[in-house]
Amino acid sequence: MKGERRATVRDVAARAGVSPGTVSKALNGTGQISEATRERIRAAAEEIDFRPNALARSVFERRSYTVGMITTDSFERFSVPVMLGAEDALGAGRISVFLCDSRGDPIRERHYVDVLLGRRVDGFIVTGRSSNRRPPLAGAGDVPVVYALTPSADEADCSVVVDDTTSGSVAAEHLLRIGRTRIAHVTGPDHFDATKRRYDGFAATLAEAGVEPTGNAMFGGWTEAWGRQATHILLRAHPEIDAIHYGSDLLARGGADALREVGRRIPEDVAITGTDNWELIAEGARPPLTSVDLRLADVGRVAAQRLLDAIEGRPHSGLEQVPCQLVVRASTDETAG
Rank of each mutant, 00 (worst) to 15 (best):
L259P: 13
L280M: 13
V292M: 03
I266C: 12
D293M: 06
L259F: 07
E261A: 14
E261Y: 10
L307A: 06
T290Q: 02
A282V: 06
N277L: 00
A285R: 03
R314M: 10
P288F: 09
T290R: 03
G313Q: 10
R264S: 08
D269N: 07
D269Q: 07
S291Q: 00
R295T: 07
I266R: 03
G313P: 01
E283M: 11
L259S: 14
A303I: 03
G274Y: 05
I281W: 12
A271T: 08
R306H: 15
I266G: 09
L307G: 08
V292Q: 02
A303F: 07
I281L: 13
P315L: 09
T273F: 05
A271C: 09
V270I: 09
R314S: 13
G284M: 01
T273D: 03
I311T: 01
I272C: 02
V302L: 06
V270N: 04
R295E: 10
P267C: 13
V270E: 02
L308T: 07
R286G: 08
V262W: 11
Q305S: 12
E283P: 15
L289G: 01
P288H: 10
V292E: 03
Q305A: 13
L308F: 10
A297M: 05
R314A: 13
R314Y: 05
I272P: 06
A271I: 09
P315C: 09
V262L: 08
D298T: 13
A285K: 02
I311C: 00
P287Y: 02
Q305H: 14
L280W: 14
E283A: 11
S291H: 03
D293T: 05
S291D: 01
E268H: 09
R286V: 15
A271N: 04
L289R: 01
R265N: 15
E312V: 09
D269F: 02
A258S: 08
D276W: 04
L308G: 07
V299H: 03
P267W: 12
V302H: 07
A282K: 04
I266P: 01
A297Q: 01
P267V: 15
P287F: 04
V299T: 02
L280A: 15
E261F: 07
R260S: 14
P267E: 11
T273S: 05
S291R: 01
T290M: 00
L294G: 05
T290L: 01
V299C: 01
L296M: 05
A297H: 03
A297Y: 00
P267N: 13
I281N: 00
T273A: 04
A297G: 00
A310I: 06
P287E: 00
R264L: 12
R306A: 08
R264P: 04
E268R: 10
V302Y: 06
E268M: 08
T275H: 13
V292A: 00
D293Y: 09
R264W: 13
L308V: 12
V262S: 09
L289A: 07
E283K: 08
N277C: 01
A310C: 02
